[in-house]
Write a protein that binds this DNA or RNA. Sequence first.
DNA 1: ACGATCACG
DNA 2: ACGTACGTGATCGTG
Length: 629
Amino acid sequence: MRTLTHSVAGSTVGIHIPERRDDLDRFRAFLAQGDKVLAFDTETTGLDVYTPEHRLRLAQFGNSREAWVLRADAFGEEIAAALRQPRPYTMHNAQYDLLVVDRHLGVRLEDLGPRTYDTRVLAHLLDPRAPQEGGIGLALKPLSAVYVDPDAPDTQEGLTTEFRRLGLTKATGWAGIPIDNELYTRYAGLDVIFAHRLFRVLGPMVREIGLDHLSKFEHHLQILLAILQRRGFRLDVPYVETLRTDLLADAEAYKRVAGRYGVTNVNSTTQVAAALAAMGEALTERTASGATKVDKGVLLPLADLSLGWERLDVRAPNLLADAVLRSKRAEKWATAYASAFLDLKDADDRLHPSIGALQARTARMSISRPPLQQLPSSDWTIRRAFVADPGHTIIAADYQAVEMRVLAALADVPRMKEAIANGEDLHAFTARLIEGDGFTKRHRKLYKGVGFGKVYGGGAVTLARQTGADLDAVKRAIAAYDRVYPEIKRYSRRLMERAEFGRREVVTPSGRHLPLDRDRLYAATNYVVQSTARDLLAQAIADIFAAGLGDHLLLPVHDELIAQAPTADAEEVIREIGRAMESTFFGVRIESDPDVYGPSWGHGYGCAEKKGRCVVRESHPRKWGVRHD
DNA sequence: ACGATCACG
DNA sequence: ACGTACGTGATCGTG
């Protein structure tokens, strides 16, 4: 047995590394010594748990004074047996470690998850801000430095340096560092000691501010999302391989066109700007740091294309701008999507993206590796890569204008609430209210934009820029909006006043405290609305599992749920899921739209199958679905 | 490491 | 008094 010592917050701690089976007697004695909650952590070869090469290397157990670092290759059974003992554990970022031991040791998520406390969840409830936003962040090191010991070592940073010393990189280090490397072992042990100490500080803090109930819900939700992550989403591999090849060929062809204008790298904004200027194009927009702006918004008009990439016929298209746009898009789709899908799939051709339950400041959920909440929606080609299991059909249900409804409920806007109760199209209702029965589609679009401005806290200038509408017209529209819905402005002002004179935060109906930036108090309304909409979807996920429908779920996407069901039951299942999503919030109905997509996710975006291949439908509604009362 | 860009709700 | 667009993840170029 090797033992290392270290100083933590002024006292000496021990890190024990069993080497032979005999050493385990002392480990068992440690487990039996009566700590109420033990800390647990793992070291693995990488973050992608379901890729074929992923391995568990070390498993660490600890309390505030000692850590036990066990090699998974030698003591896997012992680690699993310890975790199966019915006692509570604390982990930092439990979702990851729970999936690791579920996959590699057969310790079920459903068994260990419900008796796990996650210090990352506690930290998010106390302050969700990233370091860049003036918060502590949610990583173990900065949290330990604030709450445990200002001299807490940055174990991630320290290991990166060690990787480099050994000729390894951040990418190869986690798998390649010798398993008995002293720094690696020491930091592995320290991580659980810090996690345990952190739990003993954060647990009581969360209790003190009355967030135990929310904490319990978030821990539960995190397990449900981990179940979705474990389930994964089936990938149509031959389709993705062809798609990737086609996209890369496209990108190459357009790069060659750009090359004819002297642009050797279409991703270099400096090169593109210089070449366009040399062609006589006037480039007037600048980025925040003063560089010439050549983004999509600048290039599309030069290429005589609308935001939807259709010919405008207002000028001769600049062929360089056109080529840059097309090659960048093709390359982005090929690398960020198609290639990423292939790199991350498991042995059964499934993708298991990380689904973060408490990610943004507003607690919105996020999906990464790969980013499945950000797939192109204007076109079905990327989403077509994801297919239902054999005999199943992809289904989905989304909330109808959930953020506007939440705003109507929270700000208590009588006219809006009535329109929602009567099943009216909210933006058309507003247009009629202001413009009379002769309102046009343009009016509806304008007031829809104003509504978004209210939700985001935007002003006339931004709105005019976003919609392309005339600034004076937008100013008049905002004034009219405030006249018919004065409660919204009043509500926003009240939130800002409270934040200005009380604590600089807003509190959501679920009890979540959201800190505000000093110079961006206007974001208060958006934070409450966005966070509340997230809480509604989170509650829906919990309700769907409670109703026994959890097996169908695949992904949450902000205001919708993607799921699958045996084809014969698809309509019925999505109706039930849709019903479970619905609720009454402060007297406002929160309603959902259930949809049956088809064999793939892309079938909800206009892909229609013909002889096994997708063809573009002549005119496709974004979705076609089953109506439900 | 950071800014610019682009994908989503 | 006025006005402030919100939240993410990923890649690439630049220094």
